[in-house]
Amino acid sequence: MQMFVHTPNGLTLEHVADDATIGDLAAAAGLDDATGWLEDADDELALSTTVAAVGDHGHLHLNRCKQIEVTIHFAGTEKTHRFAPGATVSRVRRWAVGEDGFDLPKTQRPKHEIGVCNTGMIADRQDHVGSLTTDCKLCFDLAPKDRFQG
């Protein structure tokens, strides 16, 4: 089968044997002491778990960090929350604009996006937070989306 493997080094598409384990993939990625997560899942995968749990063209995250501490800046304030490394930026954004985050009015929520602090870059919603940092911490800005005029 084929599998998308997300690590702090980025994203690869791997051909894996059907009976391979998460531990096998971690070793192949040079991350022997890493843990595995399904995309947007909070619970770790045991290293003995076979790749069938991920599925063909599924997404697996491998990381030495057990959690990513995400700090989001908005309108002069900041909030911090810990996510599993396989959490997508989309999930972080839903938290940030939602009731547990900055609780933006519902009409304003789609008009804001997540950017990586001090880079001027939009964080793509399908990226995993664990792929955007090497020290288990991440800084985002929540900012209005660009509106093209004139």
Binding site: F4, L11, T12, L13, H57
Partner: peptide
């Protein structure tokens, strides 16, 4: 690239 193919397989 894996990033583009990921979107293809998600149906995006």
């Amino acid at each position: 690239a894996p990033s583009f193919l990921a979107g293809v397989f998600r149906g995006d």
